[in-house]
Write a protein that binds this DNA or RNA. Structure first.
Length: 994
RNA sequence: GGGUGCUUAGCUCAGCUGGUAGAGCGUCGCCUUUACACGGCGAAUGUCACAGGUUCGAGUCCUGUAGCACCCACCA
């Protein structure tokens, strides 16, 4: 519980951990926590409403970065909103075992101890990984708690938990039973460093500088004329040349030459037509290989001849299949030349082998030429190693049957992408999807549930016993089996996450209640990796989509738009933004454990420049509000600490207005009508002032705006609506307006109305802000609620505000709009004249009946807000004294200049106003002068334009008249004031002189 | 090669179904006014990338161009 007195200073570091601990201990995060607002009693809410989000599971041994914190904020805001709406709400937490990533971390730890993974047994190594998981696994939980994430911790899951592992095996077996999983020897993406296969998605290609080697493959003498080629300038001459006798092939990978089993040309390429079917002698090996024709070959590229290495290139593999070519594997798993290579080259690493082969070819005169060449190099996303297409036995998911329904689900709108555009990206990938290689040659992960007997027969089963039983049935006796050593791709288990976490394959109540989940919140970078696969798996096993919507957000970058990365040294830890960090600690953090230690110095310099004093503590609420503001539809979201700083000030503002509100409400709590009574004043009984009705009306509009923004996942718009209302309407105007009414000497009824309004509006605002700023709102609400007659143990479970309780009040809006306009008119004069603090008299000219009425109602208020010494209405025929002027509709506001305002300054100010007005006037006139506009535009637009014109004309007249008057004054005072006068004023008076 | 997005104030970005260009930060004045100097009041600042088109009217819709990002893809 918070201290009884509200401390003068807002201290998020004290409030936030305490409040979170209280929530967690009270069990408020679980669906249907006691005291949760009842969905069925809330009008408009669906009965038995459920809401569920599953968290994208972060790597269990990792730490949360800015992107996670952003994502968690969005999910928490959604979760809290729906929970307050009275829906049974579950935010399902958990972590991922992240196969390769985690295994690599542990391997590196072992290396530091001088141990190689392969020196340990598999069991010992896996035990090490578990130990590391136990040791580091708490970090994410601590971070999420600090972020205020209201996940149901009692349901926390890990992809390698027994339950989830059972789900993985079940899924594998079922897919296998349906014929959708198969094992096959194919060319895969092989990582020669990690010694495992990878899926297509785990390979990143980037352009790198390389060479194009033009190699001469001698023709085997035959009956047709020998041909020399490779001279693009004279292909025809070459074709008829009698010079023997080689073909030139262009390659970026000469070392694979040893595995060539053909040379291909385009069947329509006249240069080589005659050679099709003949043979070349493969250099260094002496093997003879055929010249074949295939449409794949582009005659315009290189020499028009392609060496075909089916065992080491995906295209060549396809060509090899078409032409029934043999596959010759020349590499070992770690990409050294194997025994298929000539003895002198065996055992050489691939790039050394390349150099050696080039040397040998050069020596034999078989290099035609070497060109620099940019090419796409595939690298493993984890190891960074150049990927080798490599022939191995792997497990695949046959994807076509799964992709069809997954495409249909998005087409039909059963899954909706937000923003909608991302569905295009999804479709594009899904329509070109390839079978998914799911086996990995790792030790950390879900072991593939397949067993082999000595004859190589495969038994896919849920357990070793089942497999044995199958083998027994087959052989009629027990046979020894060994389990497949491979594990599954991490994303296989991730694909099951939306239902495996809810208990599948068992038919649990949670699964029935919360599947399909409502929304997946994720970055666009894992649409293919994860989103698509969840949709396919969900449809395959649950016969239903895993989520109704996919909210795709942008990626958090640093203030300069750079991706945050360890090697760039620009990473900002969300916790450091919350709690602050001293410069030395920050420097240490950024320069420790760098892959390239030489970057440390420049990282340190940049960090010192950007954060000379480290990072100040901002608190979670300020950070979360910043994330909300960042949640635009943009792909790149720049994280700038200046914004967090601004939002800390916003928190401070909220804190201080709370101190004010609590101060006034606490003193006389018994006077305050109950919130229920205040809420029941939709018909605006007389005791409420226009300001009371206005702020309620504005609150209603804000609730609507927030509701709409949240429904569209536009948290940026929600945040700005909240900011605007809180600061610019509630604090700047309403609180100022009601201060007089709250004074002890004020009229009791008005005071009670003001207190009730302030109390209910502020209490409602706290609820509206809560999903984005959970801590400060709870801290204030705990103190405020009792004072306004609101019961409930926590704001977390208080009902979500309803716009209908705060209906729009056009009359009050107009009334306060007028007050604001008058006050701003006076303030503008005073501000411009640097006399803001002086009390000045205000004269009113051209006051109509309506204005007089308003003046009667709000005179004291105007005096208070604009700091007026008196207000006097000029009689119709009364001449106004020299004055600075502002116009509000027909009303003229006059602040007498006498002794306060220099005529020259006022003249300058008026000139500026009149200039602006003239532009508007001209535009409006032109518009209305255009008959086509008058005829074609909607009537209300034309009417509005006419009204504007009238207003501009009135201003024009008023300002001109005023300028004439002030000019006279300015001329009178000019001799002594020439130097002091503003340039514009001087010019104006010069122009004005006859 | 295919696809997607972006270009609005000095900076970072909003601008919904076309109808008076906005916010935050920064800048410049004035102000210790009893919630807040983490504050108050006021001010300045835009050829909405460019060129066409549709329309009475375009930051907004259409076409094209340029620049900048990103994604997918097997050209040796």
């Amino acid at each position: 519980m918070p201290p009884a007195e509200m401390p003068k200073t807002y201290s998020p570091g004290e409030i936030e951990p305490r409040v979170y601990a209280h929530w967690e201990a009270a069990g408020y995060f679980a669906p249907g926590a006691p005291g949760t607002p009842d969905a069925q009693s809330a009008p408009g809410a669906k009965g038995e409403a459920h809401y569920c989000i599953v968290i994208p599971p972060p790597n269990v041994t990792g730490t949360l970065h800015m992107g996670h914190a952003f994502q968690d904020t969005i999910m928490d805001a959604l979760t809290r909103t729906h929970r307050m709406r009275g829906e049974r709400t579950l935010w399902q937490p958990g972590t991922d075992h992240a196969g390769i990533a985690t295994q690599m971390v542990v391997e590196r730890q072992l290396e530091a101890e001088g141990i190689r993974r392969t020196q340990l047994s598999r069991e010992a190594f896996v035990e090490r990984v578990w130990a590391w998981k136990e040791q580091s696994g708490g970090t994410i939980g601590r971070q999420m708690r600090r972020l205020g994430a209201s996940v149901d911790w009692s349901r926390e899951r890990f992809t390698m938990d027994a339950d989830l592992s059972r789900a993985v095996i079940e899924a594998f077996v079922r897919l296998h039973e349906r014929g959708l999983i198969y094992r096959g020897k194919r060319l895969v993406n092989w990582d020669p460093k990690l010694l495992t296969a990878l899926s297509d998605l785990e390979v990143l290609s980037s352009e790198e500088q390389g060479s194009l080697w033009h190699l001469r493959y001698p023709l085997v003498p035959g009956d047709a004329g020998a041909v020399s080629t490779g001279s693009p300038e004279s292909p025809v001459a070459a074709a008829t040349s009698a010079t023997p006798g080689y073909l030139v092939v262009a390659t970026t990978r000469p070392e694979t030459l040893l595995g060539d089993t053909a040379v291909a040309v385009n069947p329509h390429d006249e240069r080589y037509r005659a050679l099709i079917g003949r043979r070349v002698r493969l250099p260094l090996t002496g093997r003879e290989i055929p010249i074949i024709a295939d449409d794949y070959v582009d005659p315009a590229f290189g020499s028009g001849c392609v060496k075909i290495t089916p065992a080491h290139d995906f295209n060549d593999y396809a060509i090899g299949r078409r032409h029934d070519l043999p596959l010759i594997n020349v590499f070992t798993p770690d990409a050294r030349l194997n025994d298929a290579a000539p003895e002198a080259l065996r055992g050489l690493p691939r790039f050394t082998a390349r150099e050696r082969i080039i040397e040998q070819l050069t020596a034999q005169g078989l290099i035609e030429r070497i060109e620099p060449h940019m090419l796409m190099i595939p690298r493993g996303d984890r190891s960074g190693e150049v990927i080798e297409p490599y022939l191995t036995d792997q497990w695949y998911v046959s994807i076509a049957a799964l992709a069809g329904p997954a495409i249909a689900a998005v087409e039909s709108g059963r899954v909706r992408f937000v923003p909608e555009n991302w569905s295009k990206t999804y479709f594009q990938w899904m329509h070109n999807i390839q079978d998914w290689c799911i086996s990995r040659q790792l030790w950390w992960g879900h072991r593939i549930p397949a067993w082999y007997d000595d004859a190589g027969n495969i038994y896919v089963a849920r357990s070793a016993e089942q497999a044995s039983a199958q083998a027994h049935a087959r052989h009629g006796r027990d046979v020894p089996l060994r389990q497949d050593p491979d594990v599954l791709d991490t994303w296989f288990s991730s694909g099951l996450w939306p239902f495996s976490t809810l208990g599948w394959p068992d038919a649990t109540p949670e699964l029935a209640s919360f599947y399909p989940t409502d929304v997946l919140v994720t970055g666009f970078d894992i649409i293919f990796f994860w989103v698509a696969r969840m949709i396919m798996m969900g449809l395959a096993f649950m016969d239903e989509v895993p989520f109704r919507a996919v909210y795709v957000h942008g990626l958090i970058r640093d203030a300069e738009g750079q991706k945050m990365s360890k090697s760039k040294g620009n990473v900002i830890d969300p916790i450091d933004v919350i709690d602050g960090i001293e410069l030395p600690a920050l420097l240490a953090k950024r320069t420790a454990g760098l892959m390239q230690p030489h970057l440390a110095a420049s990282i340190e310099r940049a960090t010192r420049r950007q954060f000379p004093n480290g990072i100040a503590a901002h608190g979670t609420d300020a950070l979360r509000f910043t994330f909300a503001q960042l949640a635009t539809q943009s792909r790149d979201l720049r994280f700038d600490l200046a914004r967090v700083d601004a939002n800390r000030k916003f928190c401070n503002k909220l804190w201080n207005v709370a101190r004010f509100a609590l101060g006034t409400l606490a003193s006389v709590a018994q006077e305050v009508p109950s919130a229920a009574a205040a809420t029941a004043t939709a018909t605006a009984p007389p005791m409420f002032s226009a300001a009371d009705r206005w702020i309620r009306s504005r609150l209603g509009a804000t609730i609507e705006a927030v509701d709409q923004a949240v429904a569209e996942y536009r948290f940026d718009l929600a945040a700005s609506a909240l900011y605007e209302f809180t600061w610019n309407e509630l604090c700047d105007w309403y609180v100022e307006i009601v201060k007089p009414a709250l004074r002890p000497e004020a009229q009791a009824e008005a005071r009670a109305a003001a207190r009730a309004t302030l109390g209910s509006v502020f209490e409602t605002l706290l609820r509206l802000l809560h999903p984005l700023m959970p801590f400060i709102t709870e801290e204030i609400w705990q103190r405020l609620a009792p004072l306004v007659g609101v019961t409930g143990r926590t704001i977390m479970l208080a009902p979500w505000p309803r716009a209908a309780d705060f209906p729009r009040d056009a009359e009050a809006d107009a009334e306060i709009g007028w007050v604001r306009a008058v006050v701003e008119g006076v303030r503008q004069i005073k501000g411009e004249m640097d006399i803001a603090m002086r009390r000045v008299p205000l004269l009113l000219g051209h006051a109509g009946h309506a204005e007089l009425e308003r003046l009667r109602r709000h005179g004291p208020l105007l005096s208070y807000l604009a700091a007026l010494s008196e207000i006097r209405v000029l009689a119709p025929d009364e001449a106004a004294p020299p004055a600075a002027v502002a116009l509000v509709g027909e009303l003229t506001l006059l602040v007498p200049m006498a002794g306060l305002i220099e005529p020259a300054s006022e003249l300058a100010r008026l000139e500026k106003l009149v200039q602006k007005n003239r532009q508007e006037l001209a535009r409006a006139r032109a518009k209305l002068g255009n008959q086509e506009f008058v005829h074609n535009a909607p009537a209300d637009v034309v009417t509005q334009e006419r009204e504007r014109l009238v207003d501009f004309e009135r201003r024009e007249v008023g300002l001109e008249r005023q300028i004439q008057q002030v000019r006279v004054l300015a001329q009178q005072s000019e001799p002594g004031e020439r130097r002091g006068g503003a340039a514009g004023a001087t010019r104006a008076s010069a122009e004005g002189a006859p």
